[in-house]
Every structure is written in C-alpha cells, then in structure tokens.
C-alpha cells in the first residue's frame, strides 16, 4: 500500500469514527429513546461484559457451529450432485431445468416444512441451512462443468480417461473458480438461515440472543449481538476471499 492509499484509509476510518461519535451524541442527547438506541459506549460495554463472562463466546460458537456444519454439508453435497448433473448430457437436459425452476424459491419457505418433519431441533436447523446453501454451490458446479473448454474433453476422450478421472482431473479443477464463487455466496445464506433458525427454534446462538435481548428491551445487548453478527459476516467473507485467492493462484499464474 503506498502512502496516498494509506492516508485515504486513515481518513476513511476517521469518517467512520465521526459517525460513531454522532451516534454517541444522538444517544447522549436522548434524541432517540435509549430503550431503542443505546450509545456505542453501552453497546461496547455490553460486548466486553458478554465476552468476559463467556456468555457471548458460547452464543458466537453456537452460531458459527450451525453455519459451518450446514455450509460444509451443502458444499460437499452441492459439488457432488453438481458434478453428477454437470458431467452428463442426459442429466443436464432432464434435471437442470427443474433446478433452474427451483432456484428463485425463497429458501426460508422450506422452514415450516422442515419444522413439520423434524421439529424444533438442531437437525431441523442443519437441514434448512444445508438446503438453502446448496443451491448456489450446486448451480455454480453445473455451470462450471458446462463451461469447461471442450478441447479438454476431447483430450480426455483420446486418452480414454474414465468418467471419474475426467471429473477429478479436468472438470473440477477448471470449474473451481465458479464453485468457489458459489461457496462464497452460500456463506452469506448460511449465516442468515442460522440466525433465522435460532430465532424460530430457540437454539443456542446469536440469533436467539438478539431476539431475547429485544424481548427484554435490553438494547445494549441487542446492539452488541448485531455488531457481532456483522463482524461474523465480514470475517467469514474475508476468510473466503483469502482462501479463494490461495486456491486459485495456479490459475492466475497460468493466464
């Protein structure tokens, strides 16, 4: 980062700090009732208190756990199913249109069905998160398989590679940018659905924590939870970008 960019960064942080100061001012002057809007000082104090007593750690861990299990399950299943569909012309003509039809379905609408089948349980949350997160990954895999350079398939045919070998040696590596982009999209979906499931099923996590805080009008705790959810969203998406960068380094070098 050169000096000018660094200066802009500092200025940008200063502006953000200015907004926080403004928030503090509004809260101090009680322009908005403190029942709804705690000052940043109170939200911060609540964060510190929550972390030092270990309460927030366990809630954060709960949310991350739901998110991670659901997302991993969706990734594995999504890539596997996507590979099966994408690598076969027959499957593509018969199955892919149905998937396209289901894609715009608001996935949260599956929650009541999942509750009816599995009750208000962890299994329900896991199913819903995985179901919601699978779509971007699966469709990206199908799309990535379809966009593989046709000559690579010709090479595979002349080498008489088996279908599995074609998938692992040719299709998956060349579809990996699409797949990783799908996995990144799914990460956001997984976080949102984790929060919704925690709110509905009362599962241990930040979603439940913010809802309880709201019901008890503990606005400082509520804002602390929301801030923590924002940080979770930010950190996971940055981590995913880094992973993408690392995993695709070989492709960047090739071009």
């Amino acid at each position: 980062m050169n000096r000018a960019a660094l200066l802009w960064r500092v200025a940008s942080f200063a502006v953000a700090a200015g907004f926080i100061a403004l928030w503090q001012l509004i809260a101090n002057l009680k322009l908005v009732s403190p029942v709804f809007l705690p000052g940043p000082d109170r939200a911060w104090a609540s964060l510190v208190r929550g972390f030092s007593s270990g309460d927030l750690w366990s809630k954060l861990a709960g949310t991350l756990e739901h998110m991670a299990y659901g997302w991993l399950a969706a990734s594995i299943a999504g890539i596997a199913i996507g590979a099966i569909i994408g690598s076969s012309r027959t499957m593509r003509t018969y199955v892919a249109p149905s998937l396209e039809f289901l894609r715009p379905l608001p996935v949260s609408a599956i929650i009541p069905v999942a509750i009816a089948m599995l009750g208000l349980t962890q299994a329900m949350a896991l199913f819903v998160i995985a179901f919601g997160a699978i779509w971007p990954i699966m469709l990206a895999t199908v799309h990535g398989f379809g966009a593989v350079e046709p000559r690579l398939y010709e090479v595979a045919r002349s080498l008489q590679m088996s279908r599995l070998a074609v998938i692992f040696k040719i299709a998956l590596p060349s579809a990996s940018p699409d797949i990783l982009a799908g996995m990144r999209l799914s990460l956001t979906v997984a976080l949102i659905l984790s929060v919704v499931c925690e709110i509905l099923a009362g599962l241990d996590g930040l979603g439940h924590w913010v809802l309880l805080s709201a019901r008890a009008f503990r606005s400082a705790d509520l804002f602390a939870g929301v801030i923590l959810l924002g940080i979770t969203g930010y950190v996971t998406s940055v981590a995913m970008s880094l992973a993408e960068h690392k995993l695709l380094a070989w492709q960047a070098a090739q071009r």
């Binding site: 940008s12 809802l211 509520l222 804002f223 939870g225 929301v226 969203g233």
Partner: peptide, 23 residues
C-alpha cells in the same frame, strides 16, 4: 472517505436487524 463506514455496515445480515426493527 465512506469506504470504511460502508464496509462496516454492509456485512450485517439483514435479518439480524429484525429484533432492532421489532422493538
């Protein structure tokens, strides 16, 4: 100038605002 502010607010999952909007 707004970059940090925008990037700080954007990752908040919309549904997390639900309890705030509720009260």
């Amino acid at each position: 100038l707004m970059e940090v502010t925008v990037e700080a607010i954007r990752p908040i999952p919309s549904i997390a605002l639900l309890p705030i909007a509720l009260i």
